[in-house]
């Protein structure tokens, strides 16, 4: 009698526990259904979703307002990824809001950051045709803008370097070298032919004089022309003399600079030789001193008879 009564009690308790568990499951499922959120679809085409996972936070001004519910490749090409985000119902998402991926630089963990649209704009509730939820457009982060600027800067820098490289190309260097050589040759010739140029100018002046005498009968016009020719000759003479002086000075300066550079090089080389010798001599002297100190007995008690030199004696 007692045994049967215990079975009844155990069965009753088991049934009660099962009923409580069933009630709990029903209650939890119902509560989950009653959690208030709004779902949006975000398409990311330009940004990488590396570090983003289901459950990753969706933030607005740095505050978590929802989670990533799922993602998949969108149909229609362009390798765009469709991300479904659940955002708390009380968070107003305005028309014009954009979303971008914000990634921790150290951990690499990504989150979706929503830059809300103007506060005066209407709430984003309209569902586009063919979509299940309202769509938040893709934006760009500050890091993307910085990266774009850096990329543009690097491209510009590369172009500048390329132009400098072109400017300093071997062809240009050779051309510059040839120009300097020609300039040097020109100055040398001008300096060497200075006397000839003076003679030429003098000859021109003489010719002008003869022309003036011979053309005295031609009249006043011919006289004015003759004066002009003399003037041109004088100006050319002055210009040539100044050019010759400038070229000679240029040649002297170049020679002086070359000599000074050579002198600087030679002096530096000798100084280095002396310094290295001094270092070597000091090292040798240190070695010798060390060898002497290696025999403390000789330092304390003086030399032995075997160490004495020729003709030396101990008292």
């Amino acid at each position: 009698m007692e045994t049967e009564g215990r079975y009844t009690l155990v069965g009753t308790l088991v049934l009660a526990v099962v009923a409580v568990m069933a009630a709990a499951l029903v209650w939890l499922a119902g509560a989950a259904d009653r959690i208030a959120y709004q779902t949006y679809t975000l398409y990311f085409e330009k940004q990488s979703l590396d570090g983003l996972a289901v459950g990753s936070p969706v933030k607005m001004r740095g505050i978590k307002v929802g989670i990533v519910d799922g993602y998949r490749f969108a149909r229609g090409g362009d390798e765009a990824v469709s991300v479904t985000a659940r955002i708390d119902e009380g968070v107003p998402v305005h028309t014009g809001a954009v979303a971008y991926i914000k990634r921790n630089l150290v951990t690499g963990i990504a989150a979706v950051e929503i830059d809300n649209g103007p506060s005066g704009s209407p709430l984003l509730v309209q569902v586009p045709q063919g979509e299940r939820y309202p769509v938040i457009a893709e934006g760009s982060s500050d890091i993307d803008r910085v990266a774009t600027a850096v990329s543009r800067l690097s491209v510009n820098g590369a172009q500048v370097l390329e132009k400098m490289n072109t400017l300093l190309s071997e062809d240009n260097q050779r051309a510059l070298g040839r120009t300097l050589a020609n300039l040097d040759e020109l100055s040398s010739h001008l300096a060497a032919n200075k006397q000839s140029l003076d003679t030429l100018v003098q000859a021109m002046r003489d010719a002008a004089d003869e022309f003036r005498f011979a053309g005295a009968s031609i009249g006043q016009a011919a006289t004015r022309a003759e004066g002009s020719i003399v003037g041109v000759g004088d100006h050319a003479s002055v210009a040539l003399k100044e050019a010759v002086v400038a070229m000679e000075k240029l040649q002297r300066d170049a020679t002086l600079i070359a000599a000074r550079v050579q002198q600087f090089t030679d002096t530096g080389s000798l100084e280095m030789t002396n310094v290295s010798r001094d270092v070597r001599t000091s090292a040798d002297a240190l070695t010798t001193a060390g060898q002497r100190l290696s025999d403390p007995r000789a330092i304390l008690f003086g030399p032995t008879r075997q160490q004495l030199g020729p003709g030396e004696k101990l008292p």
Binding site: T288, G309, P310, E312
Partner: peptide, 29 residues
């Protein structure tokens, strides 16, 4: 240039040799 000398000779001590393969210093010169 200053004349260089080996470590053993680059000293103010006078050097002598009792055999071709040995060298020594005068102790009082």
């Amino acid at each position: 240039l200053d004349t260089t000398a080996g470590g053993f000779y680059d000293t103010d001590q006078m050097v002598f040799a009792r055999s071709p393969a040995t060298r020594g210093y005068y102790q009082f010169a």
